[in-house]
Amino acid sequence: MTARDVKDILGARVLVGEDHLEVEVRSACGSDMMSDVLAFSKDHSVLLTGLCNPQVVRTAEMLDIVCLVFVRGKKPDDAMLEMARERNLIVMATGHRMFSACGMLYSAGLHGGAI
């Protein structure tokens, strides 16, 4: 699956990284707790979260997460978007709740796997 597929499935808006949408996404993680995301630690994944702070971008960079999707209509501020742009991260936003967004991606074949 590509990041463009994630965008289409979730009806998401791309906030940063429009030119990187063909990147492969192999798995997904949904969490507002970055400690849980750190335990997930899979590369080429998408992170779904409602947490809007710079730690999300830093965590994504550490784990080779290629795409951030902010759920529940959350929108990161300009400083976070600039951090993501500098790190070549794709950032999207969707109005779906996290449970629904994760379920939609899972149904489309994107799995998280066991820790």
Results as ranks from 00 to 15, higher is better:
63 L>V: 10
16 V>I: 14
51 L>V: 06
29 C>R: 05
36 D>N: 03
81 L>S: 01
79 A>S: 14
109 G>R: 03
28 A>D: 10
9 I>Y: 03
50 G>E: 08
5 D>Y: 08
10 L>R: 01
87 R>A: 13
17 G>P: 10
69 V>C: 03
27 S>T: 08
96 H>A: 07
85 R>P: 04
6 V>K: 04
90 I>V: 12
40 F>L: 03
51 L>W: 09
36 D>G: 01
15 L>W: 13
30 G>L: 07
11 G>W: 00
81 L>C: 14
87 R>V: 06
77 D>W: 06
63 L>A: 05
38 L>G: 01
44 H>Q: 15
21 L>I: 08
78 D>P: 03
42 K>P: 00
6 V>W: 09
37 V>R: 06
34 M>E: 07
101 A>R: 03
51 L>N: 11
72 R>E: 15
6 V>N: 09
106 Y>C: 01
19 D>S: 14
15 L>Q: 12
95 G>K: 09
68 L>M: 15
43 D>V: 02
63 L>E: 11
7 K>P: 02
21 L>W: 05
85 R>L: 00
101 A>T: 04
78 D>I: 10
92 M>N: 03
43 D>G: 11
53 N>H: 15
35 S>P: 00
12 A>D: 12
48 L>N: 07
12 A>S: 14
14 V>A: 05
79 A>W: 07
111 H>W: 05
38 L>V: 14
54 P>I: 09
10 L>E: 07
74 K>N: 14
99 F>D: 11
111 H>N: 06
5 D>G: 05
27 S>V: 03
101 A>E: 00
15 L>T: 06
109 G>F: 01
69 V>T: 07
3 A>M: 11
24 E>D: 13
32 D>L: 02
50 G>Y: 08
1 M>P: 09
95 G>I: 02
31 S>T: 01
100 S>A: 15
12 A>C: 15
10 L>Y: 11
56 V>I: 10
102 C>S: 12
52 C>Y: 04
21 L>F: 04
27 S>L: 01
80 M>S: 10
61 E>W: 11
19 D>F: 00
32 D>R: 07
8 D>R: 12
37 V>F: 04
